[in-house]
Amino acid sequence: MNGRRFIQSGSRWEELAGYARAVVDGRWVFVSGTVGQDFRTGRFPEGAEAQAELALDTIGSALAEAGAGFDDVVRVRVYVPDRGDVVAVSQALRRRLGDNRPANTTVCSPLAVEGARVEIEVTARRNA
């Protein structure tokens, strides 16, 4: 499919909806919206910040498999159902992204996955 490569994380949602955790297309890496859920157990950690950290672990793994990292991220989209969680989620993002400073949009909206307090998607451009 025109040199595209698909990366899976093992989430049941990927199989259910027929999508990839990430798509690599040339130098671009598109990581799907990722909730902070342990895909092996189906459990969510307590709190939006802990869920953001777990979502970022999953995203980091997908980026690494694609030959990229958080330094390559150029766009972040964050969805949180509770406006009160925005600061905690933002702090988790800041720790992972460091001085990278990608474009960011944060939307307060209900999420499709029950129990999820955050969903994060990123776009990266590999430098290698």
Rank of each mutant, 00 (worst) to 15 (best):
D72Y: 05
A68V: 04
A103I: 06
A48K: 03
L63V: 10
A17L: 15
P110A: 08
E14H: 09
A128K: 12
V118E: 02
R43C: 09
R21W: 05
N100T: 15
G26M: 04
E65Y: 05
E49Q: 08
S9N: 14
W13Y: 15
L97C: 09
G60F: 09
E14R: 06
E46T: 03
R125F: 10
A62W: 08
T58Y: 05
G18W: 07
A20D: 12
V74N: 00
S61G: 15
V74S: 06
S90Y: 13
T105K: 05
W28R: 15
G10S: 12
D57P: 01
S11N: 12
Y19I: 13
V86M: 02
S61T: 12
D72K: 09
R94K: 14
L93N: 08
T105G: 07
T105S: 13
F39N: 09
C108H: 05
E114W: 04
R75V: 07
E53I: 14
A20I: 02
D85Q: 07
Y79P: 00
A22L: 04
V74C: 02
S61V: 14
V86Y: 03
G67I: 09
V107N: 01
Q8I: 06
I7F: 14
D82T: 04
V80W: 01
R125N: 06
L16W: 15
F44G: 00
N104T: 14
N100L: 08
P102V: 10
A124E: 00
I7S: 07
S9I: 10
R4S: 03
A103K: 13
D38H: 15
E46C: 02
T58F: 08
G42L: 04
L111D: 10
R75A: 11
G18I: 07
M1G: 14
V87M: 08
A17P: 04
E65F: 09
C108A: 12
Q8S: 09
T34R: 01
G67Y: 08
G115E: 12
D57A: 01
L54R: 08
V78Q: 02
C108M: 10
G33E: 11
R40V: 15
V24C: 07
D82K: 06
D72W: 07
R83S: 12
V31T: 03
